[in-house]
Design a protein around this nucleic acid. Structure first.
Length: 221
DNA sequence: CAGTCGATTCACT
DNA sequence: GTGAATCGACTGA
């Protein structure tokens, strides 16, 4: 690895003001810094997914702007954090021009620093590679919740979240495939990107339609 | 206003 | 591989 002098330079907003399919793979190998009162955690991104605005049936922005997804419609370089399954958070980075509502879901990464704090939040992780192996695990390890929704990742160097240049993955290291857990039309596009062979990359799972509510069990034959 | 279900994870068979 | 956990946002009546 050639540790250049610029690898800790924050990415500027122009980096995110590009088509999401360009930004997403380009985020691999970059370093996400999460600063908390406890201390900083640094994460090298190894897996991401692209969500392509209002035209994308798999995106939260598909049915237009709501209170929850408002940040996606705002300027690039901000965090979109949502709460799901009643217990998890997931972290996205908004990209493309304002109003375009595209974003990149940060699905996995390798903890480079701050392991102590990451394990404190993820006591079930059995090794370093499991700390942020999956989008909700990543957000948990980093202590990210809805309070960080809208947070600028291209802002001050003391901000709660920022993205550094890192060592971007070379194109030949990057693989792509269908998005995890996305069903219907949105399942067909290979808009999930990961670093080939990295142990922190999460396993692929097809979309699983939820079972019928048990409070309304089926009656009759 | 009630019903449905989710860009998931974990325990268990 | 299957099912539970758990709650807020969204949908349609």
């Amino acid at each position: 690895m050639t540790a250049g002098p610029d690898d800790r330079t924050p990415l500027d907003r122009d980096f995110f003001d590009r088509p999401v399919l360009q930004v997403a793979p380009d985020l691999l190998g970059r370093v996400l810094v999460r600063r908390t009162p406890d201390g900083p955690i640094e994460l090298r991104l190894t897996e991401v997914e692209a969500y392509a605005g209002q035209a994308d049936p798999g995106s939260h922005a598909y049915r237009g702007r709501t209170e929850r997804n408002a940040v996606m419609f705002g300027p690039p370089g901000h965090a979109y954090v949502y709460f799901t399954y009643g217990m998890w958070h997931c972290l996205n980075l908004v990209c493309g021009p304002e109003g375009h509502a595209s974003g990149v879901l940060l699905r996995a990464g390798e903890v480079l620093d701050g392991h102590e704090w990451a394990y404190e939040r993820r006591p079930k992780a059995r090794n370093d590679h499991e700390l942020a192996k999956g989008p909700a695990r990543l957000a948990t390890a980093l202590g990210v919740d809805r309070r960080l929704d809208g947070s600028d990742v291209c802002g001050s160097p003391d901000a709660p979240l920022s993205i550094l240049t890192g060592h971007p993955a070379r194109p030949e290291q990057v693989l792509s495939g269908p998005r995890t857990g996305v069903g219907g039309e949105g399942a067909t596009h290979p808009w999930r990107f990961w670093i080939d062979g990295d142990p922190s990359v999460s396993p692929y799972r097809a979309h699983t339609p939820r079972r019928r509510n048990s409070t309304r069990r089926q009656v009759g034959t």
